[in-house]
């Protein structure tokens, strides 16, 4: 470690890389062309379907479009990220119907 590195900012926290990261995320949304209304509708539908099977914590629900490293291509691809906390499973009505 050289003497002056003490004064230098860490590269990861430099405003240039902050800009790059923010830009990448903004572009993920822009390129997918998914409006917040559509995302909201999607969220409602997901809640509706999942609620048939389990009780979920709607307050803590987090659904967003973000990006992940692509397996085959170089670079990143958009992904739908959903974090849905489960409170409890619903009683299985299906077996009783038989």
């Amino acid at each position: 470690m050289d003497f002056f590195s003490f004064f230098r900012k860490k590269k990861q926290n430099s405003s240039g890389s902050v800009a790059k990261d923010r830009l990448k995320l903004v572009l993920v949304h822009d390129r997918v062309n998914c409006s917040s209304q559509i995302l909201e509708m999607l969220k409602t539908d997901i809640i509706k379907v999942i609620s048939n099977y389990m009780e979920i914590d709607e307050e803590e629900l987090d659904i967003q479009i973000t990006q992940t490293e692509s397996d085959d291509k170089n670079g990143t691809v958009p992904v739908l990220y959903a974090n849905i906390p489960i409170k409890s499973m619903r009683k299985a009505n299906f077996s009783e119907d038989e």
Binding site: K11, S15, G16, A19, K20, L23, K24, L27, G75
Partner: peptide, 19 residues
């Protein structure tokens, strides 16, 4: 000077994003 300090995106950053 700002690129060297890390306070500005450089040409590689921009071309990586815009392809």
């Amino acid at each position: 000077d700002m690129v060297k300090r890390g306070d500005m995106m450089n040409i590689e950053d921009v071309t990586e994003i815009l392809a």
